[in-house]
């Protein structure tokens, strides 16, 4: 009985971790699908989402004594919106100033730019976040605000204890997935995205504003990453300027695992990665190696199924 509980405990754990990866992975996959760019800075967009939410909380006057329903229904959404605004703004700025001028350059150029943006954003937050009056110094980890009703709270389902933060992450993924499905399949911009990802030149000829579509892709990815940033803060209780590096790498692995360019693939890939990581840490032991397994999985996928679980849109643009 205990073994079963342990399994389900780890499964839930893995699913919530996987939701986190999935939310970030969508950003990689959407951008790659449309401009064939691995946006290394996407991990940092995720980090900025978390810091944006933190800043919103500071602006609200660090409310910590709100009641649980008020916190969940007002405080958390406001923080999320703050995070989304920060992430989307930064993502659009980098797209406009760093990537767009390089759209016809050899592929090496935007990749190098992406690395540069990634390092720049990390350092920018590290050096300057503390300069905002009243804000803590970001050179080391900052404690993420606790949201009454979610932080530290748990619910009991059968013999399994579930963190409310895990519930939040899973719920966020489900909502975002539904939103994405609607956005891509039912809106004009979404359909323009599909068209652009298949053939940007023809899409342009058909009167689609490709620049706008690309910006939309960056914005959607950034928005989801910001939600993931908040989820990360709630889950681990703290945020730091380096948090985007490893999370970004894992999320990219998830995107490749599901098939890069494929939105459903990113979600499935994220969940699979989260569950595998969580179960491997439990049953294979050796938690010191847990980050290695994800990358080994990445390499194995590239060897045996480069198109990913659900099939990639584009593997090689020779």
């Amino acid at each position: 009985m205990d073994l079963v509980n342990l399994f389900f405990q780890q499964l839930i754990n893995g699913l919530s971790l996987g939701s986190l990866y999935a939310l970030i992975a969508v950003g990689y996959t959407v951008v790659y699908g449309i401009v064939q760019l691995i946006n290394f800075a996407h991990g940092e967009i995720f980090m900025i989402g978390a810091f944006g939410a933190y800043a919103t909380w500071m602006v609200l006057g660090q409310p910590s004594d709100w009641s649980a329903p008020l916190s969940i229904l007002v405080l958390l959404p406001v923080m999320i919106i703050g995070g989304i605004v920060a992430s989307v703004a930064v993502a659009l700025l980098t797209e406009r100033w760093a990537y767009r001028p390089l759209r016809n350059a050899p592929r090496l150029a935007p990749l190098i730019t992406a690395i540069g943006v990634s390092v720049f954003l990390q350092e920018f937050v590290r050096l300057f976040y503390g300069y905002i009056p009243g804000f803590p110094d970001a050179k080391s980890a900052i404690a993420f605000p606790s949201v009454p009703g979610i932080s530290g709270a748990t619910i009991q389902v059968g013999g399994v204890l579930i963190q409310m933060s895990a519930v939040f992450t899973l719920a966020a993924l489900v909502v975002c997935w539904v939103f994405l499905w609607y956005y891509v399949n039912r809106t004009k911009t979404g359909r323009a995205m599909i068209a652009t990802s298949q053939d940007p030149d023809t899409a342009r000829l058909m009167g689609i504003n490709v620049d706008k579509v690309i910006m939309a892709a960056f914005a959607v990815g950034a928005g989801l990453a910001a939600i993931a940033g908040v989820a990360h803060g709630l889950r681990y209780g703290n945020i730091d300027f380096k948090m985007g590096f490893l999370a970004g790498l894992k999320a990219f692995t998830a995107a490749v695992l599901g098939g890069i360019g494929n939105i459903n693939g990113a979600v499935v890939g994220g969940l699979v990665l989260g569950v595998v990581e969580s179960l491997a840490a439990t049953y294979l032991g050796a938690s010191a190696w847990k980050d290695v397994w994800a990358f080994v999985l990445l390499i194995l996928v590239l060897v045996f199924r480069p198109q990913g679980l659900l099939g990639a849109k584009v593997v090689d643009r020779a």
Partner: peptide, 23 residues
């Protein structure tokens, strides 16, 4: 394994490799 697929993946796999090495 990576170079067979695409140059793009090499960047991210080497990035991951750097992490694997450190860990």
């Amino acid at each position: 394994p990576t170079l067979r697929v695409s140059g793009d993946y090499l960047a991210i796999v080497t990035l991951a490799f750097g992490e694997i090495f450190r860990i």
